[in-house]
Amino acid sequence: MRKLYVGITNDEWFYNLRDISPEVVNFWTPGAKKFKALCKGEWFLFKLHAPQNHIVGGGKFDFFSVMSLENAWKKYSIQNGVYALQDLTSKVRAYRKNTGGDLEGNTIGCILLKDVIFLAERDWFLPPADWSRCIVRGKTYAIDSESGNYIFENFIKGMNRLA
């Protein structure tokens, strides 16, 4: 079964990366919880937070690892979606506000994505009808499901218009 994952992302992360258009990005998570939703080569798509609430791009999942903030910055620098280690540290601390901003061993989850595509705004599309407003991190879809097919077809259509 082929799958895709729609991950919710920070608008600033998306716009910073879209501006430089790298082929590889680190979709970092503030915790080190293992990401097991996809196999290598499956699509990981980006959905902006409400009120924008559109699927706007994506990349092919390569691998997941846990890294220190410093190592993630050294390895991926601006491919983390920020312009300095201090910015990355501040963002992680803000997302960990429920733990008082503690950096819990100074590690983050790193979801490495390759062949990244940033759709033109005209090709952004809304998530499917079964997308719940309660989703915090993201959701996996089988491509052959109704919702998965809707997402995949719209993404491919937007990707083809970029070519």
Rank of each mutant, 00 (worst) to 15 (best):
E42A: 10
W124S: 14
L85Y: 08
K114N: 11
G59Q: 01
N10E: 14
N80C: 14
G138Q: 10
G58D: 06
Q52D: 13
F64E: 03
Y95L: 02
H54Q: 15
R137F: 08
D19S: 15
S65T: 13
C110H: 07
F64P: 02
I20K: 13
V25M: 13
F27P: 01
L113V: 03
F63K: 13
K60Q: 13
G148F: 06
V136E: 09
K139N: 00
N98G: 01
T89K: 15
L162G: 11
G158E: 10
W13T: 04
V6C: 01
W28Q: 00
V82E: 04
K91I: 01
G59V: 02
Y95Q: 00
L112V: 11
F35R: 00
A32N: 12
I111R: 07
W124A: 11
V6G: 01
G59K: 01
G138K: 04
K3Q: 07
L69R: 15
G7I: 01
F46K: 01
G100M: 10
V92P: 00
I108Y: 09
A84L: 12
G58M: 10
P51R: 05
A32L: 05
G41P: 07
L113G: 04
M67L: 13
I78Y: 04
Y5T: 01
D144T: 12
A32G: 07
G7A: 09
R133A: 03
E104S: 14
I55H: 05
P22M: 12
V82K: 01
V116C: 11
F27E: 04
D11W: 08
W13V: 09
N160R: 15
G57L: 07
V116P: 04
P127S: 05
F35Q: 02
L88S: 04
D144H: 09
K33Y: 11
P51S: 04
L126I: 11
G31N: 15
R93L: 01
L85Q: 10
D115H: 07
L112R: 01
E104D: 14
D130S: 14
F14G: 03
R93F: 00
S132K: 08
L126K: 15
D102A: 10
N26M: 09
L48E: 03
S21T: 10
N26G: 04
T140V: 13
S65W: 09
D102H: 14
A142G: 08
Y150K: 14
E121M: 06
F35M: 00
P51K: 05
I135A: 00
I8T: 03
M159S: 12
T107L: 12
R96M: 03
V82Q: 01
F64W: 15
R122P: 06
G41F: 00
G58N: 02
A120G: 15
T9R: 02
E146I: 12
N149A: 12
K33L: 12
A50G: 13
V56L: 08
L113F: 02
G138N: 15
G105A: 09
L113R: 00
G138S: 11
C134I: 09
N149S: 15
G109P: 09
E70R: 11
N71C: 04
R137Q: 12
P128Y: 04
K91C: 03
K36Y: 08
L88D: 03
I8H: 06
A50Q: 06
I55P: 07
F64Q: 08
R133E: 08
Q52G: 06
E104G: 14
N149H: 08
W43D: 05
C134A: 14
N10F: 07
I156E: 13
G7T: 02
A94R: 04
A50D: 03
D87Y: 05
H49R: 15
W28A: 02
G148L: 05
Y83R: 14
